[in-house]
Amino acid sequence: MEIVKPLLQFLAAALLAPLLPGVINRVKAFFAGRKGRPLLQLYYDLAKLLRKTPVYSRTTTWVFRAGPLLGAAALVTALALLPFAGRPSFLSFDGDFIFLLYLLGLARFATVLAALDTGSAFEGMGASREMQFAVFAEPAFFMGLASLARVTGQTSLAGMFGALTGGTWSTAAPVLALLTASFFLVLLAENSRVPADDPDTHLELTMIHEVMVLDHSGPDLAYILYGAALKLWLFAALIGSTVLPRHSGSWAGDSALFLLMMFGLAAAVGVVESVIARLRLTKVPYMLITAFAFSALALIFQMGR
């Protein structure tokens, strides 16, 4: 049973991840007073795209075709590292979060190169912005993980989230609160959500992530959409495990609570998107620097304790 559980967790995450964008959209529809898309829309989209025949630009090479594949593979591998409800996944080792960070980097690198392969001005623009924001997001994310490592005295994801308990919240509440805020800002920016980017925008000039994948179609686009859902799941899970340390010994109970937390986070993203306007592009670095400041403060608090 102990071998089966991590695999079950992995499968649950892999299968449920496309539900998160659905939840966000339902919340946004609720706020806008619209009927909105079905909750399972992304599943329908994926099924449809996988059956379609792609169109390729004559400019592109194998790099363009490999991009979505590499991105999705990197994110699935990252998912295999991710603890589920504070319990280790089947791939867990000392320093695994560094590996996770660089898997996200690989996904970004592959997407950016695929975008540049189209020779389009717009996709180049998106690629440039994506890389720019990464320069600010990565140190913020790193600092957050560093303070988490410092709080728990552990250097693996499973160790960090396993050592985090309700008791930690009562002793180091400011640290964890700052961390959560910082991770949430990074989540918004990395997953191209409002206020960093607008996934529903219709003007190529203002897009960031969406513009990089304009030329992809068919199964390639399905890979990209699925990868994006996984990425959202990944960041949400990091926040979820910080906010909601496990307390009961029951695997089923903890898992159910964790899943609830994930959907709650998706709903929170939906609320943010509904009530906040998008930032000007030039202001996005400031938002990420704020995230960095939060996690740096968290680390300073923790080191001073």
């Binding site: 025949t53 169109v55 390729y56 630009s57 004559r58 592109t60 001005a121 996709e123 030329d215």
Partner: peptide, 10 residues
């Protein structure tokens, strides 16, 4: 399936 060839979307 035979993927179609086209222009880059600009």
């Amino acid at each position: 399936k035979t993927p179609a060839q086209g222009l880059t979307w600009d």
